[in-house]
Design a protein around this nucleic acid. Structure first.
Length: 491
RNA sequence: GGCCCGUUCGUCUAUCGGUUAGGACACCAGGUUUUCAACCUGGGAAGAGGGGUUCGACUCCCCUACGGGCUGCCA
């Protein structure tokens, strides 16, 4: 059987549509995807990747990409966490259509749907208390029996209903199977008798996740649900809600989760679980997008690509089925390539955003100009913004240059003497690499040293550190007067 | 425990029954070099294990092992 394109969808699909028709319709309508994070902390890097996949899929097809905050858990949801999600999305350049939707705001609609299911006979009132259920589960576990809870109220006569709080449970089919036609995992079959009657509305009247996602996805017109494969089993239960309501089931694509470099679940221990941390570490957004897109998805042997290409190439078929590990070395490599390929002004703009996000001091107008002038040579040697700043130090700082320990070693007596005689030769030549190059080569030769021996003290004089652009580039960026002044300072 | 998913170089992956199993990152060696970054050349490096099916399996099926997910009035 082919991995993709299995013709059957849920066997519980509504009567008016044959499965084949249903599948065809789903896949032909304009694409609408969404990312639905729960605001319970920072924005997880895995959530960011899922968001990216959804964004790529929708935007690449002229569809819509929506953002819904799953904040039905009032205890754990916070406005700060929501803000972190919005911020992370914005940083990665993942724009969503319309306003971010609060799932909590739809609670009345969710409750209405639960009652509609009740009225249709697709759900029932369950008066079992949480204590009773808990006791049952404990006993079942102790006796090594199935912990699947079968509510005694499923077929109870309403006349026997007590005047007590109740939860509304889905009246799930007890025989047959539910098949998820997943674009990544293929056809996955679940036996219905192994699934319980899940609660759709809690006894306090609030909806559960299982109900809320389905209602919201339906109401928002979501056509493709691309999410972590930890939801694969949930898809079967959710399918039952779609079927009970006679709604069209979306196209499913459950993507493998990502893990830390050690293959273990990504945790705080790895140092970077939140997208904000990546921003603070100074990775450019384009590099992050490239890396995250390539992690678990492929388009032949393409490794480095622009967001435009990703938009054009991204598809569900290219998503792998195995879990992937984060590889910071590869992330850095890709980021370096993106920095080098960036437009100077855009790079400067992103660099300033990085400075702000990481709490570093802002650039002065003069620094901004120097940086822009030197960007052509700086961007080729940095993989992250901190690296770029380190190499731009020479252009950012004013005189006097304070050499660090390593570069100070290059400024011994002999070298200083050699530096001292250099300015006169630079005084009135044209300030281009073409004319500067022979002058420096000649100066080195005149002093009986190789160019490398001359470059070191010049580098120390101009930058005060050892990792910098080439001495020519620094001279060009600094300009004649500043260059000469620094050489004289050091000599 | 039950159900479900996964398993190709260290890592991300290509392969969609017939390849010397390819690429990228990383690594090692050499070269280039003006530091850093980059660059050039070369190298080592993989189908979890066992059964099938087939003229032929990395590819299809089964079992095992390992990893992961679900099994909540969390999402």
């Amino acid at each position: 059987m082919p991995r993709h394109g299995a013709k059957h969808t849920s066997i519980l699909v509504s009567e008016r549509l044959t499965p084949a028709m249903s599948a065809a319709r789903r896949e032909d309508r304009p694409v609408v995807t969404r990312i639905a994070p729960s605001p319970t902390g920072y924005m997880h890097i895995g959530t960011a990747r899922t968001a990216l996949f959804n964004w790529l899929f929708a935007r690449g097809r002229g569809g819509k990409f929506l953002l819904r905050i799953e904040d039905t858990d009032r205890e754990r949801s916070s406005p700060e966490a929501t803000a972190a999600i919005l911020k992370g999305m914005t940083w990665l350049g993942l724009d969503w259509d319309g306003e971010a939707v609060s799932q909590f705001d739809q609670k009345d609609r969710h409750a209405a749907v639960a009652h509609e299911m009740l009225a249709k006979g697709a759900a029932y009132k369950c008066f079992s208390t949480q204590e009773e259920i808990e006791a049952f589960r404990q006993a079942a576990t102790a006796e090594k029996r199935s912990t699947l809870f079968h509510s005694p109220w499923r077929d109870a006569d309403p006349a026997t209903h007590p005047d007590a709080p109740y939860a509304i449970r889905m009246k799930a089919p007890q025989t047959g199977e539910t098949v998820i036609d997943d674009k990544v995992q293929g056809a996955v079959t679940f036996r219905n008798d192994l699934l319980d009657d899940m609660i759709v509305l809690r006894s306090d009247g609030t909806p559960t996740y299982m109900l809320a996602v389905v209602v919201d996805d339906h109401d928002m017109g979501v056509t493709h649900v691309i999410r972590g494969d930890d939801h694969l089993a949930n898809a079967a239960r959710q399918t039952m809600v779609y079927d009970a309501m006679g709604w069209q089931v979306p196209v499913w694509a459950h993507i493998p989760l990502i893990f830390g470099p050690d293959g273990k679940k990504l945790s705080k221990r790895h140092g970077a679980t939140g997208v904000e941390e990546y921003q603070i570490m100074g990775y450019p957004a384009a590099g992050m997008r490239n890396y995250l897109t390539r992690l678990g998805w492929s388009h032949g042997d393409d490794e480095f690509f622009t967001t435009g290409q990703a938009l054009e190439w991204f598809n569900l078929e290219g998503i792998g089925r195995a879990t992937a590990r984060l590889d910071f070395k590869k992330l850095e490599n890709l980021c370096g390539q993106h920095i080098a390929a960036s437009d100077d002004a855009a790079l400067l703009h992103e660099l300033e955003a990085f400075l702000a996000a990481s709490g570093k001091t802002k650039l002065t107008s003069a620094q901004r100009h120097k940086l822009l002038a030197g960007m052509y040579c700086l961007k080729e040697r940095a993989k992250t913004f901190p690296e770029l700043i380190e190499k731009a130090e020479f252009a950012l700082n004013d005189r006097p240059v304070l050499p660090d320990v390593a570069s100070a070693k290059s400024l011994d007596v002999v070298s200083r003497g050699i530096l001292e005689t250099l300015p006169p030769r630079l005084q009135s030549v044209s300030w281009t690499k073409q004319t500067l190059e022979p002058i420096l080569t000649e100066h080195a030769a005149a002093n009986g040293i190789g160019f490398g021996k001359l470059a070191a003290p010049i580098r120390a004089a101009l930058a005060g550190r050892s990792a910098t652009p080439s001495v020519y580039d620094m001279m060009l960026v600094l300009g004649r007067d500043e260059t000469i002044a620094r050489l004289q300072d050091a000599a």
